[in-house]
Design a protein around this nucleic acid. Structure first.
Lengths: 132, 132
DNA sequence: GGTAATCCTTCCAGTTACGGGAAGGTCAAG
DNA sequence: CTTGACCTTCCCGTAACTGGAAGGATTACC
């Protein structure tokens, strides 16, 4: 398989696939013409990576997940721990976003949003009322 | 005021302040020794920027907010529109995170998390069940 | 057999919003 | 006069790619 085929079948851009090889996530073979020659197992890994990335895991987390996936002697507890930590990270991020939203929503609510220049959003940002 | 003073009083790292000057968000004066000489108005702007960043606005959004802040003829509607778009962006991000969380939580819930290698998280990622 | 389109390759640069650290000038205190 | 705390600029590194240039390979078509 050439890179276009795996790109189409995995849903990942060719650029991304090359990048994943560069950082050592996959190691496709090479043909006599220098083209990457992907096996089914490479495609499989790429699909795995695409899904892990889709769940928000970082590349380094994906690397660990892939290592665990390939390790037949892993403990599922290790995988679960990684996933739970990621769930927590996301929880934190959501909380941060929620806090920002709450503050900004208050400011927005108090702004007339008309042609006049008076704007509580700007005065809030200027005066420090933009902190909860 | 030297940079350390504004850093302490604005809560922004000196590095960040230099960066903001570099990208044209502020234009402090210079003393004969080459040191930046910050006015109260610079400090004021930096505090404004720090709060806007704290609400998650990008640098470019902060630039627009600052321009609106300095424009006595602005319409508050313009500010409000910017803020509302940002609220929407955050909403989208939260929704994405929530979706990832939901999927991952299902996988985590079905994983024993013990010393055995069988792991629904990994098989889910491998098989495509990791998509809602 | 020629040529054009579509592949493929590598390499370089840019993105966001800074942070780390080096090399070197300045200033206030003791 | 030296020490330590400042200050300056400059360059590299971050995460995870994306875009594009320059050039080689393959395939389709006439």
């Amino acid at each position: 398989m050439n890179i276009k085929d795996v790109a189409d079948r995995s849903g990942l851009p060719a650029k991304t696939i090359r990048y994943y090889e560069e950082i050592g996530l996959i190691r496709p073979l090479r043909g006599a013409n220098g083209y990457r020659a992907f096996r089914e197992s490479d495609l499989h890994k790429l699909a795995f990576l695409g899904r892990a990335r889709g769940l928000g895991f970082t590349i380094e987390e994906c690397r660990k997940l892939l290592a665990l996936y390939e390790d037949r002697d892993r403990a599922s507890a290790d995988v679960k721990a990684l996933a739970e930590r990621h769930l927590q990270d996301m929880e934190v991020k959501i909380a941060e976003l929620r806090a920002m939203q709450a503050t900004l929503r208050d400011l927005v609510a108090s702004c007339a949003g008309d042609q006049r220049p008076d704007c509580p959003i700007l005065t809030g940002l200027a005066s420090g009322k933009a902190c909860h």
